[in-house]
Design a protein around this nucleic acid. Structure first.
Lengths: 124, 124
DNA sequence: GGGTCATTTCGACACTCATGGAAATATCGT
DNA sequence: ACGATATTTCCATGAGTGTCGAAATGACCC
């Protein structure tokens, strides 16, 4: 996970509507949710929602797929785990991390296999 | 840790110069670093640095103290841990977090004592 | 192919942000 | 009190962001 990716992710999440969208998608799990359903849930105008969805997509935080007429968005858990890992490693102090942990989502298949995950998991 | 605090923290860190400043202060530990020393290390104009330092301070991410002529800034590790905790809990999926952890800095005295820390530590 | 539904793109607007020079403020040593 | 040092505040400027109505695109069904 490179700094510029983390920066993009933070910028994307540092906005109330987008954070709400992302949390909604995390809650929805891998199946995701259609744009319309998100717009309704958050009471956001379609054009505005689309703007935010593309911001999140560009940041690599969410994925898009089409399902007949609807576009379904879902959270990219691996990316989010990478960001949290970066912050923990680089922004929480490196010497004093003896013991304390924050539980995190299980690695997604893609993260578990290839893609060197820079975040060292504690062996608990 | 409330959503608006997390939002403020993310907004503060979602900017390259500020992320660099914060990482420098994390590296410096509790002793911190003077504004001048930061400006020199990152090659940032004093006025610009001051602008960013106050953004980080307003977000609650760093602390300021005076030491004779210099103002010393240091990272607020408890705050950062809170933000990472929030992201892990709310943005990494809640069902699938069985086992995986990300090591995090030991809680600061203030976090360890009072101030209900919403982030559940895993018992490893 | 025409109608309809779901969503995006375009365009315009108000607003906020990042930058840095110049002036102001605070602290120290003499 | 004065000069030097460290840092902030003030100000102007250019760039970027969030919002949303209206028009365009894509997909389905008959």
């Amino acid at each position: 996970m490179e700094k510029k990716d983390v920066l993009a992710g933070l910028a994307a999440l540092a906005q109330e509507t987008r954070l709400d969208i992302f949390r909604l998608l995390v809650e929805a799990g891998p199946e995701g949710r259609s744009a319309g359903s998100i717009a309704e849930a958050l009471a956001v105008a379609p054009a505005t929602l689309s703007f935010h969805l593309s911001a999140l997509t560009n940041a690599g935080l969410i994925l898009q797929r089409r399902e007949s007429r609807s576009l379904i968005y879902s959270a990219d858990f691996g990316r989010m785990t990478g960001i949290v890992g970066f912050l923990s490693e680089n922004c929480c102090g490196r010497s004093a991390n003896a013991g304390a942990c924050i539980p995190v989502c299980a690695p997604t298949p893609e993260a578990a296999n290839g893609e060197k995950t820079a975040s060292p998991r504690c062996g608990c």
